[in-house]
């Protein structure tokens, strides 16, 4: 049980995917103007990550021991098709949910955070439940980073910012400071 908590907190805070592994930066910098959009994108991320954890577990268990060199290709293609499949199912079964999350799904299926999750949990040798907890933690971490960033950016819109700094440069510096703050979580769960 303790292990699960550690995996979760480690992925959520200490080794946050966005702020310490730099994964999923495109949406982090691109889709973080508004708080509610950022939050929904984060939820969609968690959703895709759970699918990813299931797919990568199945692949690692039954396919890849025979052909390790197909790891990358099969991860990408299987994850992308699984997400597309779920997207179609979601459109049919719950149009409301689809309107809220569905538009983000194509955007994140080939995102580095998703592939990164599959690769990292394979490298760490996680089993089924560990992989699932890791996916939840990582997705939560990405959501947290997105929401924090969007919150700060909403505030900066009212400020008088020099034209030179506006845009990506400013966002990167904000992200740097956020990342520094997250470093404070290191050592949270050790002896």
């Amino acid at each position: 049980m303790n292990d699960f908590i550690w995996i979760f907190v480690s992925a959520l805070l200490v080794n946050n995917f966005t702020l310490s592994y730099f994964l999923g930066l495109c949406p982090f910098l691109g889709v973080s103007q508004r708080l509610d959009t950022a939050f929904r994108l984060g939820l969609a991320n968690i959703f895709v990550m759970i699918i990813t954890a299931l797919c990568s577990y199945a692949l690692n268990q039954w396919v890849l021991p025979f052909a390790p060199y197909l790891r990358l290709i099969s991860f990408i293609i299987v994850i992308a098709s699984a997400v597309q499949f779920v997207e179609m199912a979601m459109k049919k079964l719950s149009p409301d949910l689809f309107r809220k999350l569905g538009i983000f799904l194509p955007l994140i299926t080939t995102n580095c955070a998703i592939l990164g999750l599959a690769l990292f949990s394979t490298n760490k040798g996680y089993g089924f439940w560990e992989g699932l907890v890791y996916a939840l933690g990582a997705g939560g971490g990405v959501t947290l980073a997105l929401v924090l960033m969007a919150g700060i950016r909403e505030e900066t819109r009212l400020l008088n910012i020099p034209k030179l700094v506006e845009g990506t440069a400013l966002n990167l510096i904000i992200a740097g400071i956020l990342s520094m703050a997250f470093m404070g979580f290191a050592g949270l769960f050790s002896t």
Partner: peptide, 25 residues
């Protein structure tokens, strides 16, 4: 040390972009 840690990456790229903006402007 902070420069070789993750925050350093964000900060250095941020400042480099600033310089680039300045030159292009």
């Amino acid at each position: 040390i902070i420069m070789i840690l993750p925050p350093g990456g964000f900060l250095v790229l941020g400042f480099l972009l600033l310089c680039f903006n300045r030159v292009l402007n």
